[in-house]
C-alpha cells in the first residue's frame, strides 16, 4: 500500500524526498494516467501544502511565483497581470475552470509535455527556476531546464520550488494558442513573443518561443534575429512567417499535421507583427 507524505515546509519535504516519493501537485496529469493505467505509487508527496511553494510576490529577484501556484491564482494575480501578461494569457487557456483551479505551474513544467502552454511563455519571459532538494537549492535558467523529450534537469529527489520572471519584464508581450476549441484543448501550436520597442517602429530584445512544434519548447533564434534587424513592416512580417516555416520541424500526430503546424506557426507570427505595426508605441 501506498504511503502519503504531506510536508508543511521544505525542510520536512527534504526528509521525505529521500524516500523518492512521486510528487503530487494538482494531479491533473498524474491521476489521469494513474486511473487509465491502474498504476500505483509506493509513496506520494503532496507538494501543495509546502509553505515555500506558495504565494506570488514581486521582490528583489523579480516576479516570484511559488511552483504550487495554480493557473487560477496566476491569472488573478495583479503582479502577473502587470509584469507577465503573456503568462496570465497562457494560464487562461489551460483546460477550463476546474483544471485551472488545480493545475499548477510547477506541474506544467515538471510534466514537460511539448504542448505545455506555460512553457513557451516562460521561455519568452527569460524565467529562472528555483530547484530544492536534499543537496540544497539551485537556480537554473529555464532555457536549460528541458534536456530532451520529457526529460529535464530535475533529479528524482528534487522539487521545483519557485518560478521567477526577472524584472523589468519586456514591454511587448504576446501569447497565442491554436487548438481545436477555446477550452480543454491541448494546443496544436502555441506562440509567445516578447521584446521592447526600439525607437521608431523597431523591436529589440526579441524572444520568439513556441510549443508543440518540437520535442521541447523552443526559441526560434533566427526568427528573433530577423525581427530585430530592421523596422517593423508588412514585408518583414511576411519574411518572418516564411522563416518560421523554414526553421521549425513539427511532426504529424493525433492533434495535427506537420504541414498545418508549420503554416499556422508562421501566420501567428506574421499577424502578431502586423498588430504591433498598427499599435501605438507607448
Amino acid at each position: 500500500m501506498s504511503v502519503g507524505y504531506s510536508p508543511k515546509t521544505l525542510a520536512e519535504a527534504q526528509e521525505a524526498l529521500g524516500k523518492r516519493p512521486v510528487k503530487v501537485a494538482g494531479a491533473t496529469d498524474l491521476l489521469v494516467i494513474d486511473h487509465a493505467t491502474g498504476r500505483e505509487h509506493a509513496a506520494v508527496l503532496n507538494v501543495l501544502g509546502i509553505a515555500e511553494l506558495q504565494g506570488i510576490q514581486v521582490d528583489d529577484s523579480g516576479l516570484n511565483m511559488g511552483a504550487a501556484s495554480t493557473f487560477t491564482q496566476i491569472r488573478r494575480s495583479a503582479g502577473v497581470v502587470r509584469h507577465a501578461p503573456l503568462l496570465a494569457s497562457a494560464a487562461a487557456t489551460i483546460g477550463a475552470a476546474q483544471i485551472q483551479n488545480r493545475a499548477t505551474i510547477g506541474g506544467n513544467i515538471a510534466n514537460a509535455s511539448p504542448a505545455g502552454d506555460s512553457l513557451p511563455a516562460l521561455l519568452a519571459l527569460n524565467a529562472r527556476i528555483v530547484i530544492a532538494g536534499p543537496r540544497g537549492r539551485r537556480v537554473v535558467p529555464y532555457d536549460s531546464f528541458h534536456t530532451g523529450y520529457r526529460t529535464t534537469l530535475l533529479e528524482v529527489d528534487e522539487l521545483i520550488a519557485r518560478v521567477i520572471v526577472p524584472l523589468p519584464s519586456p514591454t511587448v508581450q504576446i501569447f497565442r494558442k491554436v487548438g481545436t476549441r477555446a477550452a480543454q484543448a491541448i494546443s496544436k501550436v502555441v506562440v509567445a513573443i516578447s521584446g521592447n520597442r526600439a525607437g521608431g517602429s523597431g523591436l529589440k530584445d526579441v524572444r520568439v518561443a513556441m510549443g508543440s512544434i518540437a520535442a521541447v519548447p523552443t526559441r526560434l533564434l533566427e526568427v528573433e534575429a530577423l525581427i530585430q534587424s530592421e523596422p517593423l513592416s508588412a514585408g518583414l512580417a511576411d519574411r518572418a512567417a516564411a522563416l518560421v516555416e523554414k526553421v521549425i520541424t513539427p511532426i504529424d500526430d493525433i492533434r495535427s499535421t506537420a504541414e498545418y503546424r508549420r503554416h499556422v506557426a508562421g501566420q501567428v507570427v506574421r499577424r502578431a507583427l502586423l498588430v504591433l505595426l498598427e499599435a501605438p508605441t507607448e
Binding site: G4, V24, A27, L31, V44, A96, Q98
Partner: peptide, 22 residues
C-alpha cells in the same frame, strides 16, 4: 467532462482528479 465537479475550498474542481490525501 465536468460531471464530477465539486467545490473544494469554494472553487470548482473535478473530483475524479483530486487525491484523497489532499
Amino acid at each position: 467532462c465536468g460531471a464530477c465537479t465539486v467545490l473544494l475550498n469554494h472553487e470548482a474542481v473535478c473530483s475524479c482528479l483530486v487525491p484523497l490525501f489532499q
